[in-house]
Simulated scan of single mutants.
Amino acid sequence: MCRWLAYSGNPIQLETVMFNAKHSLIDQSLNSRLGHTTTNGDGFGIGWYGHPTDIPFRYRCIQPAWSDRNLREAARAVRAPLFVAHIRAATDTPSQETNCHPFRHGRWLFAHNGLVRNYPAVRRDLMIAISPELFPSIEGSTDSEVLFFLALTFGLELEPVTALERMVGFVEETGRRHGVAEPLNMTVCATDGEQIVAVRYSSERQSRSLFHNTSFRHLHQLYPDDTRIAMAGQDAFLVLSEPLADLPGWWQEIPESTAVVARGGEIERFAFEPRGAAG
C-alpha cells in the first residue's frame, strides 16, 4: 500500500537512496518487508527542489519503478538538497499519472501511504470542503490528493501540523457520519522545500510503519568510514516507510499518533491529535 521517503541535507544523487542502498526504494517496490502489500508496482513519482524557494520539479510515471529505465537515469543525474520519492500500490482508484505521488501545489509537495476507508462513499463530502480557489488544481482521483487539498484548505502553508490535524479530524468526522468506524490510515509527508513534516496516524491506532534516521552527528561517530553518511552532512534528515539498511543505531521508529518536523538540522516531535476543522 505504497512506500515513500523524504530527504533533506547536503545535495546528494537521488540514486543513493532510491537504488544503491541494500533495501532501497526500488527494492521495496518489489519486496516490501514492512508494508501492507509486498509489491508496489502501480506507478511512482519523485519531486525535488533546486532551491528551497523554487517550485519543485517532478517526474511521475504509471510504470512500476523497477522497470523504468528513465528513472534510473534521472536518479543518477539529479542532485538535490531535498527530495521526496514514492512508489504506489493502488487501492480504490486507477493507475494513471495524475494519481501518482508526490502531489504538488505551489512550493508544496505531499505524499501519502494508507487509505481513506470506503472512499467512494465519502469522496463527495470531502471534496466539497476543499476551498473553491484550490479545487481547480486537483488533477487526479485519489483519496491522497484530496487529503492534500483539504490540508491546504485548513492552513497547511501557515501551520502545517495544525492543518493536518484539522484535515484528519474532518475526514474522521465525515467517515463516521457515513458509518465508517475507522475512516483513516496514513503516514504522510508534506514539504515546502525548507521543512519536512511527517505524520504517523490512523483511526484504529495501527498505522503503517514510519522511521527516521538518528542524528547524523551520532552516525558519523558510529560509522566514520561510511561515505554515504559523510556525503549527507551532519544535519541531514531522512524519513521513510522502511529502513534502507540493517545497521544498528541508524533508525528510530516514529511512534503512533506523532508528527515530526525537520528543519535546518533540528528535529522536533509532537503528539498528533485530530481536531475540529475550525479548532
Rank of each mutant, 00 (worst) to 15 (best):
H220Q: 04
Y49V: 05
E242C: 07
F270P: 04
D143M: 15
I254C: 07
E15C: 10
H86T: 06
A90M: 03
S32N: 03
L34G: 14
F149P: 05
R177I: 03
L115F: 12
W251L: 05
M167A: 05
I138G: 12
S67I: 14
I46L: 15
H23F: 13
L30D: 11
L222F: 06
E182M: 08
N213D: 07
N185H: 09
M1F: 08
A163E: 00
F237I: 06
S131T: 00
Q96F: 01
E73S: 07
N40E: 00
N10T: 13
F272K: 03
T153Y: 08
N113T: 11
T153P: 07
V171P: 01
N185P: 07
P52R: 02
T93E: 03
R107W: 06
A90T: 11
T37S: 10
R176N: 05
I130K: 00
Q221L: 11
M127N: 04
R176G: 05
L222T: 10
L156K: 07
I229W: 01
L238R: 09
R177Q: 12
H212P: 09
I87P: 02
I87K: 12
G43Y: 03
T53K: 13
E173L: 15
D42C: 07
G140F: 01
A198H: 04
D225M: 13
R200W: 05
D143Y: 15
I267A: 03
E266N: 12
F170P: 01
D27G: 11
M1G: 13
A271Y: 04
D235L: 00
L164F: 01
A236L: 06
Q234K: 08
